[in-house]
Design a protein around this nucleic acid. Structure first.
Lengths: 353, 353
DNA sequence: TGTTAGCACTCATACATGTAGAGTGCTAAA
DNA sequence: TTTAGCACTCTACATGTATGAGTGCTAACA
């Protein structure tokens, strides 16, 4: 039993109004605001139907109605129309993100902050999933005896480094030999293929005694592996407190308790983001979000690209009552801006990938 | 007019009880809980005196009394007794912070997280003020044509790096010459002495045409300068929502709005932390904190050391009604743990400073 | 002079009651 | 199928009252 035209019209109007007011919508206020050419009584009947079909909910008998998760879902899937971002807004975002050319981390930080600011909700950016990307360089730079900076360069031009401690007696020359051996042994291998064993095997070519090698291999290994750590940048969490749905302290607490465990959020986004079936963005509404404390929220994520395949996510979290169409256009714009910036960063160095 | 012994005793008891209960303290409950050997009426008289003197406040006529900022101040300055941390707790913190030897950033992150967890309040850690530290090494590592990793090593063993874009046509050899010229020219200069001019002057020794140099000097300069950026790591902000003083949405909002601007917090801590007159910790109570939204909070900070002089701060923010004595012992312990860890990191490389 | 018992007073809270307003559901008629 | 009209329900708000907590004051006592 699909919704007929008028029902759709009414549902859309209710969601639109509710997004704006956060108050249950009454039949009377609907007809006065939108011109349906029918009376409030008729609308009332339709609303009763919509409730029966599960698209609406009623907080109590004599209140107006609010959209259910299913109602929002219908709205998002087929009722709302996403408009292009206005020029001013696009420019504002663009400006914030391109004022200085940055490496990936800085770019993601800026993207997240711009998203939070522009949407008024909270935003997040996830570092790319790099386990499929492969090692192109591994350098070790001796800082002092006993202290080495391990620089890992991956396909797609991502550079990560890590300061590690090694035994004092290793000299710069030995370190160099080791790093060259590992590099030539592992170059072209993807992060997920690299294990402590493969590192050890590769390092053997340095022709140094095992007793020496053992002391540094593990450090090298973790330095490589940590390049794949998911990092998450969140912003605008404070905005959430200003929405009536989180005026209640318990709800606010539930939300912030979960948000404080950013590993959980990162893992979740990573999961839903990776299973990216088709669309350029992905929406999760209310109960669809499998995270405690986020059942009153909606989640919009999209994917940006580093190189051809490697991808990370950006997203916006707001109340279920968020302005979906606007957020979608904003997030899409940020996404293309990230992609453009990354491409620009990469163009310079003729196809490392 | 200093407080006589009994007034002190009563004030202390009130603060202690209020810290625990968050409810205004009544004369009757005081005498039943603490054995003052006087009746509630007498205590009442004393409490009226204390209020007159500004140490207590009364939310309304028929309520008990709560400490004023001045009351907390007296309590903190001369009434409370700080105990040593229990062995278990010390061990717990120690364990969290020493499970793997880390460079500075990681250590601060862990310190902050341990503090938040153990106190139940929110915590922060500030990267050290490095403008007095001096450059000991500057390396540029060519990643790809057009992409260079600038590694800055400072006295006190701090290593910072930054990925920068340079013109494609500069080759590895030229980059090496430039970095060596800058390094030898600026080595031993403190960060605050280094300017774009000194960098330019130093770079001249590379004997490369100005047209080439100009393209990379600014990047090198910002890479050096950003080593001095204050970074702040906050943790446990979500805990604040669980205190009754922040059940009110407006207060919570005020707090979180300020917290979201971490530059503001960092700047403030840096300021009060730098003017460190004498004590090993510094306490700001309520209105003493010159930050909007933090007037219901108290702030305890202390200083950790990197090398002899260079220092950063760690701190705890909680409701005014926080458990001062406990937090002080916890924060002190974290501080010494940081210092120990940093010393351990440094010991290995015989006196770079 | 310090201490205390006793009592009047104040205020917050909880609860019951009444009322107005908003909004629905139902019914009967168009 | 639509609509006007009305009864019904629920919330929000105001009002009044009882209750309890806690103080401030006073007068008596040691």
């Amino acid at each position: 039993m699909p919704l007929d035209f008028r029902k759709k019209q009414i549902l859309q109007a209710i969601v639109d109004d509710y997004i704006e007011s956060a108050e249950p919508i009454a039949s009377k206020s609907l007809v006065s605001k939108h011109d349906f050419h029918v009376s409030s009584a008729t609308v009332r009947n339709e609303m009763a139907d919509l409730e029966l079909m599960g698209y609406l909910e009623q907080p109590h008998t004599s209140a107006g109605r609010i959209p259910s998760d299913k109602g929002y879902r219908e709205y998002v899937d087929s009722l709302m129309h996403v408009e292009e971002l206005s020029n001013e807004e696009a420019q504002e975002i663009s400006q914030r993100m391109t004022d200085s050319v940055e490496e990936l981390t800085g770019l993601l930080r800026k993207a997240s902050s711009a998203l939070a600011e522009q949407t008024g909700y909270m935003s997040l950016a996830l570092s790319p999933r790099l386990h499929k990307s492969y090692l192109t360089q591994l350098k070790m730079m001796m800082i002092e005896p006993g202290k080495v900076l391990v620089v890992v360069v991956l396909s797609a031009g991502v550079v990560k480094d890590r300061l590690v401690r090694i035994p004092d007696f290793l000299n710069a020359d030995q370190v160099f030999q080791i790093s060259r051996a590992i590099e030539s042994g592992l170059c072209g291998k993807s992060l997920e293929e690299i294990t402590l064993v493969t590192v050890t095997t590769a390092a053997r070519d340095a022709h140094l005694p095992d007793s020496l090698l053992n002391q540094i291999l593990y450090e090298a290994y973790t330095a490589i592996k940590q390049a794949d750590n998911l990092e998450i940048y969140m912003d605008g969490t404070n905005h959430m407190l200003s929405f009536p749905e989180f005026h209640d302290n318990n709800r606010a607490r539930g939300l912030f308790d979960t948000l404080s465990k950013d590993g959980i959020i990162a893992g979740y986004v990573n999961e839903v983001g990776e299973s990216s079936t088709t669309p350029s963005y992905m929406i999760r509404i209310g109960q669809e979000i499998q995270l405690v404390g986020l059942h009153d929220c909606s989640f919009i994520t999209t994917t940006y690209n580093v190189g051809d395949k490697i991808a990370g996510n950006i997203g916006v979290i707001g109340p279920k009552r968020m302005d979906y169409s606007k957020v979608i256009s904003q997030i899409s714009f940020v996404r293309t801006t990230i992609n453009d910036q990354l491409k620009k960063l990469k163009e310079a160095n003729g196809g490392t990938e």
